[in-house]
Write a protein that binds this DNA or RNA. Sequence first.
RNA 1: CGGGGGAUAGAGCAGCCUGGUAGCUCGUCGGGCUCAUAACCCGAAGGUCGGAGGUUCGAAUCCUUCUCCCCCAACCA
Length: 565
Amino acid sequence: MNKNIFIGLAWPYANGSLHLGHVSAFIGADVLARYYRLAGDHVLFASGSDCYGTPIAIAAAERGISPAEISEKYHAEFKETLINGLGFTYDIYTKTTTDQHTKVVQELFLDLYQKGFLYTKTEKALFSPYLDRFLPDRYVEGVCPKCAFDGARGDQCDNCGSLLDPLELKNPRINPKILEKNKKLTSEEAQLEVRETEHFYLKLSALQEQLTQWVEETSEPWRANARGFTKSFLAGGLHDRAVTRDTEWGVPVPLPGYETKRIYVWFEAVTGYLSASKLWAEQQGSPDAWKAFWENEAAYHYYVHGKDNIPFHTIIWPGILMAKGGLNLPNQIVSSEYLNLEGKQFSTSRNWAVWLPDFLASFNADTLRYFLIANGPETGDSNFVWAEYATVVNGELIGTFGNLVNRVLSLSAKHFPDGLSFPIELSDKQTELLKNLELAFGAIGKDIQEGKFRAALREAFAIAGQANRLIDEQAPWKKIKEEGSRAEVEADLAVFLQVIRTLAILINPFLPRTSDTINACFGFEVSTTWEYPAPLQHYKIEKVEMLFKKIEDEQIEQAKAKLGS
RNA sequence: CGGGGGAUAGAGCAGCCUGGUAGCUCGUCGGGCUCAUAACCCGAAGGUCGGAGGUUCGAAUCCUUCUCCCCCAACCA
């Protein structure tokens, strides 16, 4: 039975390159998409670049270029590295600066306004005459009113730990850390003043009961961190949140008198899931196609992102959808923990990061997919250590898996260049091995559906290990030298070819290019469906190709040398 | 301050929901094999499951409490 599966992957912020931390949070979405397509379901895998916001606007102003130049540059890089580099199979990868997005966000904004879920309130905020803009709380620093520490941020004092209202700060000024390095401002330039401004608020408090009930009913399959965080968030009581900002770089508020206001990321970026779906439908030539995913109770919605994004996907976006009404809510939240690098947190300012474009220039994308699925931060923070990456690639990918494929293919091609026939009768061990492969489709599929990617991948590789043990026992390289054993060796190898060919399907959601390479060795078209393939009567090897290149120590040394520089 | 996640062999992790003689990968040591990218296979050593209490015939698993790490919280998923 075919299902409609929507997969919403977090939108990367277009003000810098992606690093492996992003990838570790993203990778599961592509595994889901590929799996469900193989299983014959309808998939809409949507994401895009988050292009608006104050950080990009400030960076652009300082460099004397337009914000669009920055966001376009990284949008192009994201597309290149995610799609061509990592092989992500988005059905649509768009950006927030499209007309379509503006239209959908504004329509949704107006709809909620008319339904009474948005209201305006005037408040005081800090304005920078130098930057000609209001500043977000954390972009402000000053003297803490409680402990007199000079350097407290607008939202909190790092010295005494008090939570602050930025208006309480004495001598408020621009936090110099938000500006480009070495930029020194005079105290006059840094000065901030209090101005009144009117903003729109989302009435989350009105949705408290509805959201609480929804979470009770649907959060069972979510990742533990999402469920726990969301429940405690709700227990603390929801507060209305401002959804507009005084800035020029964003989606304009579609109401007269508010021409200078822009809709804030909490409201605007998450709406990208819907706008991207509608854009996809238009590009398909059937503008209503999005409804099969969004106005269909039987559709199933996955959201994939890092743990810092949890409340946006489990409170704010569902709240907006409830206020709007008639659209599908999230079903499954796949929120990962954090990936550290060599034991320390990723840090862009200290260049403590492995940048995705750099990585892809030197290493095979499937090896990264493997490492981050097998060792990623699925249930707790995890660590990317270069030496471990090399060990895992050389040991598990090459040693166990690549080696199995290579030894079977090369033996077959060498001794049976005209092909091999599949035997009529199988030994107990052969039967057991093939049976395990057949069962793996159900077990691995279930794990993937539940977001347990690590377990799913391990299961597939366990079968490769089993196959390695059996081929070692049968020792066809020895048997082939014995008189009259040729038929037996042919039968044994044909079984292993069936094993490899089946493994190529099982690993397809995880290691798509590797899967394609194996299929090419058989002369097959790209793999077809998520089910155990009936053995062929005759196998012929078209070519033997190495699946992975061994990672040498020098490569690891070079990569490590780039850190922290 | 509060909240979320975590603490299991030298390293990285699973098991915990639904208690029943502690498991996986890598590493180490010993042996085998040579088709295969010095890859593969077999065997061994190595853990009082963060500490302390409790429930139970029985606790890594349930309860209480304590300690430590990460995150929410510059940049940053």
